[in-house]
Design a protein around this nucleic acid. Structure first.
Length: 192
DNA sequence: GGAATGATGTACT
DNA sequence: GTACATCATTCCG
């Protein structure tokens, strides 16, 4: 089990730890795409009305109530998908949204999947990076420490390298400071 | 039951 | 800067 979530951390803690770690996918033909996580958001079931687990389990959010370190992939606006890392203990319903990556391996493959060439635009948003790495609904509930979709732990950045802000694109729970990014990164989401 | 809303991205003016 | 694609869930009657 990855040291990132072996202690079932609360979502804000995991959101900080994930900065600098590397998200990877294998396509089954020996080709890898990967990127360094540079922007995350934490979602908490109780005090946070924006959290999908706020109203308890549904068909969509079931994997949020599983153990730390599995994927929660959901559909947004009827057409895009976003990837979360589940956190907390079983039944908590906490998760961390991966919002942006610095592309590392397989940039050509990412560009082909996205239909975009500019490296800055490949993974600068939660629904974009899902496409670039070939993540989909079939990955919902998958463990992220092994297999075709993985997170390889990096070193958690020191506090002065982490910027904390309000989250993006919300009306409910908009005031909570639960968004984290690597200060000064050129790869964070564009809407920020 | 029906209507509104949303953790977004892209195209277009 | 605005328009809009499209569906699970939520909220209201």
């Amino acid at each position: 089990m990855s040291a990132l979530w072996s202690d079932s951390p609360p979502a804000p803690r995991l959101a900080r730890r994930l900065l600098g770690s590397v998200l990877c996918t294998d396509d089954g033909a020996g080709r890898t795409t990967s990127g360094r996580i540079v922007e995350t958001e934490a979602y908490l079931p109780r005090s946070d009305p924006a959290c999908h687990a706020h109203h308890g389990p549904t068909r969509r959010n079931g994997s949020m109530f599983g153990p730390s370190g599995i994927a929660y992939v959901y559909r947004i606006y009827g057409l895009h998908h976003c990837l979360n890392v589940v956190s907390g203990v079983v039944g908590d319903g906490e998760a961390v949204l991966i919002r942006a990556l610095e592309p590392l391996e397989g940039l050509e493959r990412m560009a082909a999947r996205r239909g975009v060439d500019d490296p800055r635009r490949l993974c600068d948003g939660p629904a974009k990076l899902v496409v670039a790495l070939g993540v989909g609904p079939r990955d919902d509930g998958r463990r992220l420490n092994e297999g075709r979709l993985r997170i390889e732990a990096g070193q958690e950045p020191p506090a002065h390298r982490v910027r904390v802000t309000r989250r993006v694109g919300l009306t409910r729970g908009a005031g909570l400071a639960l968004r984290f990014d690597l200060r000064g990164s050129a790869w964070i989401s564009r809407r920020w």
